[in-house]
Amino acid sequence: MSTVSEKLMSLVEDFSELSINDRLNLLLEFSDGLPELPLHLADHPDLLERVEECQSPVYLFVEIDENRFGRLYFSAPREAPTTRGFASILHELLDNQPVDEILAIDEDFINRLGLAEAISPLRLRGMRAMLHRAKRQLQEKSIAVRS
């Protein structure tokens, strides 16, 4: 299994090699592919944290399993496909990865995807906010697990 940083590098390559229009199409593929929430969360929306920085209602939840692997779950409506695309990218990269690796990722990768040209820098703020909140939740939970 490849490490988070290897997955990151290959994703950055995938996006940056494409034309601007195809970057949007790849983001759409991610958006279409965002997995549904697992049952134990779908029944408990109160457990989810809203990403306030996104104008559309997007929610996230993280868990740490017994092997200190992070699980990341996102929920965003079909009417907000860009937000779903961001969530799906983060899910694909970070779900089921060692907590320490997730916490160590360089957030700057978001700038290297080449999406700023395709969708404008302002719209990337939502993705940064999602990653930031996911990392903060992981950090809080990992302290709780240790103590």
Binding site: L24, L28, A80, P81, T82, A118, I119
Partner: peptide, 9 residues
């Protein structure tokens, strides 16, 4: 649209 991908969906 506000959402840059919505048209494509």
């Amino acid at each position: 649209d506000e959402d840059v991908l919505l048209y494509q969906t």
